[in-house]
Amino acid sequence: MIVAGCDVGSLTAEAVIMSDGEILSSEIIGVRPKPEQSAKDVMDKALQKAHLALEDIDYCVSTGYGRERIPFARDNISEISCHGKGAHWLIPSVRTVIDVGGQDCKVIRVDANGKLQNFIMNDKCAAGTGRFLEVMAKTLGIRLDEIGPLSLAARNPVVITNMCSIYAQTEVAASIAQGADQHDLAAGITKAMAERVNSLVVRVGVEEDVVITGGVAKNIGVVKSLEVMLRVSTKKFNVDPQIVGALGGALFAKEKFLQK
């Protein structure tokens, strides 16, 4: 039995192919203009890696922002359930999943069986989502993946008071004009980002173990700041934290296939 999960988000798309409880291959791509195109491209790449064809897949579940438009998926399941499922499979002791994606942020509580118990989500405001970091990287004239490492060498992190990404951008631009150090700016940005995420986390409450999924999990500065605020150390996956949603999709695909 070969199953697949396909997660089409706002900025990236991921596919995971599994067989007999093992990940055969996974892929991440930047999204194309249309979700069906992103899904096809990322799935083709994952299939190629596993030396398989689409016909070999017994069941595929899609998830994410574009999940309803994936022609080869037989079912679609919300990214909330998929992230919970994927995170629990990787780390069974997980109870809180913080997923920070390109355009939203979700905090998901699961029980000992990985079943969804409660969640909260922000997809209305760019503050506390990957977009905030993107806007800031652009303002600083650096790459998104440079912010985290830069922030670690800060001495006096710049304080960002505005919650709104647009106003915070002006604030950062003013700090740059005043000659603020790039490390201090980066640290101010990661701290501000973590504060926004934290404000969402405290609303559903934290129970250990805590994991962070999604692209922002790769930002060491945000992760460290958030750990300080939450007073927990988060568990790290042995796979890319961006594929957790697609992995959850593949796990649901297996269940669905067995039910039939």
Binding site: K124, A126, I166
Partner: peptide, 16 residues
């Protein structure tokens, strides 16, 4: 989108 950041992307996709 209500958020200015998200609305900007929405405007660009409408244009596209």
């Amino acid at each position: 989108s209500q958020c200015t950041v998200f609305a900007e992307s929405e405007v660009i996709s409408l244009l596209n």
